[in-house]
């Protein structure tokens, strides 16, 4: 029994976890959310999920090949990017635009920086930010959940020919027996009509929203699984949600007639999805214990500022991208003192 003696620097104890194991578990934890969104939105959501994920995987493979890098498909990170990206897009988003956003996410958001671990920004959000800027109308065209023919036919805009404008979907929505579909997200209704959608509607998944952001409870349960298995830093979502709720609570104290309750703020839009799955991206979030809290608080507060005072109805995406950009600084300024080390004296 002669084992080779291995000499290496600390740390010596390995948790047995590797990038592929963690990433694979994140994918598993997103599957229930995908299933729920397909149940809500039917074939169109399924087609979008599959297409965007395939576009991400394909881009990753092609760029691996073009840059003569080893194949990185089996670390599962491109699959996470693809699924997350699809979950943040509207369910009837044209597939060709989904392919564009998947390509941008992997090529510009990840590969250009040097691949997994070197990317500054969350790739899925880079892809979404690009299509938000490129196709502002398509990305705010919503379809109702639980449409009657959702399992028998695709929404007409899904199969738009490449480079072409998506057709009008109002006629299709009229054929479905859906009552009182306004075509606006709860956040837009609050902002422009001052109507607060009830928490009941928000929780049941009937509210108008992106493919994967309506099921706050399901997302939290999936996040709980990841946190319990320590695949994710639970402090980040807690910090994001707590700071957003605290901001909302302060504003409601100030003017209860205008500002909605913290519960509405937490359940509407993509806040929970962003807090649990996107802010927690390991490559783009801080590593120091204090830094994690600061990072989460910045995201939560900036989200609320954009929602309340910005031109957009939803600010989670830009808030997380801003948090990503701040991450290196947060890490630098919150370095814990090493045990026994003296504070540096200025020369």
């Amino acid at each position: 029994m002669s084992q080779p003696i291995e000499l290496r620097a600390a740390p010596h104890q390995h948790s047995g976890r590797s990038v592929p194991v963690i990433m694979r578990n994140v994918v598993y934890s997103m599957l229930p959310i995908c299933a729920f969104s397909v149940w809500q939105y039917g074939l169109s959501a399924l087609a979008l999920l599959l297409t965007v994920t395939a576009a991400c995987l394909l881009t990753e493979r092609l760029l691996n090949r073009a840059s003569a890098q080893p194949n990185t498909l089996n670390d599962w990170s491109a699959a996470i990017t693809g699924i997350l990206l699809a979950l943040t897009l509207p369910p009837a988003f044209p597939l060709w635009m989904g392919v564009v956003s998947g390509f941008v996410a992997i090529a510009i958001g990840k590969a250009l920086f040097g691949g997994l671990g070197y990317n500054v920004f969350n790739p899925a959000l880079v892809g979404r930010a690009f299509v938000q800027a490129a196709f502002p109308v398509a990305i705010t065209t919503w379809v109702p959940a639980f449409a009657t023919q959702r399992f028998s036919e695709l929404v007409p805009s899904t199969l738009t020919a490449p480079l072409m404008m998506p057709p009008d979907v109002t006629a299709w929505i009229k054929q479905q027996s859906v009552d009182a579909f306004t075509g606006a997200t709860p956040l837009a209704r609050w902002k422009f009509e001052n109507v607060a959608v009830s928490a009941n509607d928000l929780l049941s998944g009937a509210a108008t929203a992106s493919t994967g952001e309506t099921s706050a409870i399901l997302i939290l349960l999936c996040g709980l699984y990841l946190a319990a298995r320590k695949f994710m830093d639970w402090r980040i979502p807690v910090a994001v949600l707590a700071s957003a709720a605290a901001t909302a609570w302060l504003f409601q104290l100030y003017d209860p007639a205008h500002y909605p309750s913290p519960l509405f703020v937490l359940l509407s839009g993509g806040l929970v999805l962003g807090a649990v799955f996107m802010a927690t991206d390991m490559a783009t979030s801080p590593v120091t214990p204090l830094g994690v809290w600061i990072y989460g608080a910045v995201i939560g507060v900036v989200t609320m500022m954009i929602r309340y005072f910005g031109g957009l109805t939803e600010g989670v995406m830009y808030a997380i991208l801003l948090g990503n950009a701040l991450t290196p600084f947060i890490d630098q300024f919150t370095q814990p003192r090493v045990f026994g080390a003296q504070k540096d004296e200025k020369p």
Binding site: F135, A138, L163
Partner: peptide, 20 residues
């Protein structure tokens, strides 16, 4: 080039499009 149903990529005529 593509007929009247072409979907313009708004970002391309904005400054970020220039950089891309």
């Amino acid at each position: 080039l593509f007929g009247e149903h072409f979907q313009p990529w708004v970002v391309m005529v904005l400054p970020p499009g220039g950089f891309f």
